[in-house]
Computed example of a mutant assay.
Amino acid sequence: MTKPSGTPRAVALGAALREVREANKFGLRELSRALDLPASLVVHWEAGTRTPSTDDVANVLGFFRVIGEPKKRIMDLARHVREPNWMANGAAELTPELTTLLQYEQGAKVITDWALNFIPGLLQTPDYARAIFEASGLSVSQTDARVRVRLDRQKILTNREPITYSAIIGLHAIDEPVAPNWIMSDQMDHLLAMSERPNINLRVLPRQPSYHPGMLGSFVLYEYEHRNPIVLLEQHSTTSFLSSDKDWVLYRQLARLLGGETLSEEASRAVIAEAAS
């Protein structure tokens, strides 16, 4: 029996099942007929809006003769699919499950990004992103892969129906010289250009006179029209997605708290323009 879902693992599981089907060059209706399932049900499975049972998943994998590590990974998702939060080792851009999970960006109505120490990924220039990845000790091929994925993710800000994006950037992220001056200057110019887009609200949070909870780290809040919000937390080697009510409510409150302390959009642009010069 399936139930309404939308948890992080449900989205990753659905994407994994779709990848298996497409790799075997099967259409949705073709697979539904082969397994004697309603086509609409398979659509929901792959979208992550309803979750198949572990037996259903095993049947799909058995039909396509998926074995070894791929089978283990997908079955592990299926066994834990209804858990609201998900923490996994690895960088979001390259871990298969988490790369898939970033589909949440595609369906978001509003994204709020609190960036404490770095320019948000959705607003990074290729050179800025590359400088960060290279300084992290990644190989050329790993760096190239991450930059490509990051640039692809950024399309949600500039496509025909762009999402509404609110970026709160700590002043430290503006001042921190994470790359050579020319890269930082280009990055600031890019921020100024993006801040002019009607779907983007970009504000700088000045240094505060005392402690505030945003000091504990950056986060991204994805909000939707027909499902609960998702919170993304990223560290050096761990990425977490939170979807339980108690978590996203607290992060939404924190976003509002931080937003109330920021400079105006005009004053924020003045700070960024000065940093670009």
Results as ranks from 00 to 15, higher is better:
D189C: 12
V42K: 02
V60Y: 13
T239R: 04
D56E: 14
G121T: 02
L192G: 14
G259D: 09
I174P: 01
V43F: 03
R203D: 08
A193F: 00
S166K: 11
T100G: 15
R150T: 00
W182N: 15
F133Y: 04
V110Q: 06
P52C: 09
P70E: 13
V42C: 08
G27H: 08
G14C: 06
L94Y: 03
I200A: 06
A92F: 06
F64S: 02
R50T: 03
S32C: 10
V11L: 12
E97N: 10
K71M: 07
I230W: 04
N117K: 02
R150Y: 09
Q103H: 14
S210P: 07
T100S: 15
M194E: 13
A39W: 08
V42Y: 06
N181R: 10
L102T: 12
A91S: 14
D144P: 02
H236F: 09
H236K: 10
A39F: 06
D247Q: 12
E83Q: 12
P120V: 01
T49G: 06
F241R: 05
D189W: 11
S141A: 15
L37H: 05
I163N: 06
E83T: 10
N85W: 00
E69R: 13
A10H: 03
K25E: 10
S40N: 15
I67E: 05
V271S: 05
A267P: 02
A88L: 15
V57M: 05
R153M: 09
L77N: 13
T100A: 15
N201R: 13
L101R: 05
D113L: 02
A267H: 15
V178E: 01
L61C: 08
G90Y: 00
G137C: 11
E261M: 10
L205K: 04
L233C: 15
H212L: 12
G260Y: 11
Y128C: 04
A78N: 09
E176P: 00
R18D: 08
D55E: 04
S237D: 15
T49D: 09
T164I: 07
E93F: 09
A115I: 00
E83A: 08
R256N: 14
A23D: 11
S240R: 05
